[in-house]
Design a protein around this nucleic acid. Structure first.
Lengths: 340, 340
DNA sequence: ATTGGCAGTCGTAACCATTGAGTGCTAACG
DNA sequence: CGTTAGCACTCAATGGTTACGACTGCCAAT
């Protein structure tokens, strides 16, 4: 077990390094913190911490910098949670006010989080995997165009334009609509595919291609629901903290824009604890994010966690501030969604 | 008037500078290009070009670099248009295939343009200012929730959730829907506000607040149409070309994310010529884009120009390649939209 | 008008000495 | 045994000097 005072020293090192962004040495440590001992003693402690791979010296003879492992220990064992300041609280409240639409709420949320943390903020759209069909609508907008509307119980409405080769008559649309509503209302999204299995056979052969086209679109919509989506804000903060990232930031921007990598990363973090979870540096296993930390928290809708939100920043970040910001915003979002 | 050979020299300077990103001197110029004269003569020409502010020497004694004015002359007078390569053509065709939805088409287009040019690509959503209401729909999704659907004739459907304080009955929804359709179908978006002027008075006083809520939402939607929107791709390319931008790229990323600045810039370019238009460096009047060039082209839908698309990159860019890429993509997009 | 030649300008790279922050180790101390 | 003072050592950073080289501008010759 690592003795208490060593941890105290680690905490001080992380603290100072985050503040100054300079490797921290034994002397400046005793100056800035009131340990009751001399720098030589601290040096011994630091040698110990270095043996444990919690800190590392960039060059043979300059101060120490926390390793990913060091940061991990810091957040797991030593993290006091910094409460949000008053202006931050009011910022959250004003930001969240007066939104009704899910798109708008999430858009505001992600910008808020970016502003609050000065990092890149991410908000994942609710996974509708467990959602249920509330209603289906078919609306004729032209002789050969329909709009298909899929309404689910997680405040999301999806629409898609369907183009037909020839004109379609109103009666057909009406019956199709009625049958779809009858077949699907209330069923979960994962059941939709099964429920539509023999649907086409209810119609006359010459209608079949039309029906099939609608069904294909519908299934596509359902599938689009299953596949998650992330919205981002504050990518400019990446460039602002550029020095903290070892390599160039361009591969990071690429990975972020690509979404795929990001989504998998978020997905993997799903499994962890219930509150805020972190991936520090090499922990996330991706070369382009090897000097980045991801802080994520789930948020809920109607009692069950639907998706995650969080920030991405340099490993050298203010962990307390970011963790509490992510947590607070997740709570507010849960609360806002609950009111819908 | 500037003599012909001087222009020839300017062209060579721009060409070499774009290729090497190094200030170009008289000696290397005569080596790389077959002028029939010696470096001394070229020096005289260069002194002339410098008098005209077309090129500038970063330090007293090193090669010359084109100024914004120099680039401007280059694109206006000397720009041969590089035809697209075969792989580029096929890339465009495969990218554009099999899309039906406007969102998807524009999304693909912007990614395509980014990939083709290695710059930040922007596609503006069609301005619906001159659009017409095709239909309005009200759909009840819960006792106290309606979805308002606004369908316009420029392939765009907008939806918005409306939350009521109390439950509403079906009859009311049906009559409201019918009256809205009657009042608005076919009218242009700019007329909507006027047409709804005395709409509320058709209903009994106790309904009025409900009706008003719906109308407000509707007007909000119309307004959201008028206000343009831009989608982006390839922001990672900014970081890749970082050296070409004088200052930090973070204010640029901010301005891009902000959209407002970007939209005004695009708006201003609207007035220029019909084909591809450029803003080079200081021409765009914004400090954060003082070493960037914007290349934009309009694209059309049903014969009239609806919006613009283009790229943003360093002033030191391959103008011929980017101009022809922007032009080609604009044409393909127009063509694709025409097939809808 | 063109050109070769030459002096002059600076930015860049290389080299070297100096500085100083910081370490590890050892011996002394309570 | 933990703590401490002292000391030799390391090494990045700093700054000054020099040499180099890629330029230009100008002038006299062609």
């Amino acid at each position: 077990m690592i003795p208490e005072r060593s941890l105290e020293v680690l905490r001080a090192i992380v603290h100072d390094y985050i503040e100054t962004s300079q490797p921290v040495g034994s002397k400046s440590l005793v100056e800035r913190h009131a340990f009751g001992v001399s720098s030589a003693t601290i040096r011994n402690e630091m040698a110990l911490l270095e043996d444990e791979q919690l800190i590392i010296a960039p060059h043979t003879s300059s101060g120490r910098v926390p390793t990913d492992k060091g940061y991990r220990l810091f957040v797991d064992r030593l993290g006091e949670v910094k409460p949000l300041s008053l202006p931050e609280r009011t910022a959250i409240e004003t930001f969240m006010q007066g939104s009704a639409d899910l798109d708008e709420i999430l858009g505001r949320t992600v910008r808020l989080l970016a502003q609050l943390t000065n990092q890149v903020a991410m908000v994942q759209y609710p996974s509708l995997d467990k959602g249920h069909v509330k209603s289906v609508e078919l609306i004729k907008v032209a002789d050969n165009q329909l709009i298909l509307l899929l309404i689910t119980d997680i405040s999301r409405v999806q629409q898609h334009l369907i183009q037909f080769a020839a004109a379609i008559d109103d009666d057909f649309v009406a019956t199709l609509r009625a049958k779809l509503i009858g077949a699907l209302t209330g069923s979960s999204l994962s059941q939709v595919s099964a429920k539509l299995k023999d649907f086409t056979s209810q119609f006359s052969p010459q209608r079949e291609t039309y029906v099939q086209l609608v069904l294909d679109t519908l299934l596509e919509q359902v599938d689009a629901n299953r596949q998650d989506k992330v919205i981002l804000a504050g990518t400019a903060n990446l460039a602002k903290n550029e020095d903290d990232f070892k390599g160039s930031i361009s591969p990071m921007l690429e990975a972020i824009e690509e979404q795929v990598v990001l989504l998998r990363l978020i997905q993997e973090m799903q499994a962890e604890e219930n509150g805020v979870s972190l991936r520090i540096g090499s922990e996330n296993g991706l070369a382009e994010f090897s000097s980045s930390t991801v802080v994520m928290s789930g948020y809920e809708k109607e009692g069950s966690q639907v998706a995650k939100l969080g920030v991405l920043g340099p490993t050298r970040m203010d962990y307390s501030a970011n963790i509490s910001a992510v947590r607070a915003v997740a709570r507010y979002l849960t609360q806002t969604l609950g009111g819908l």
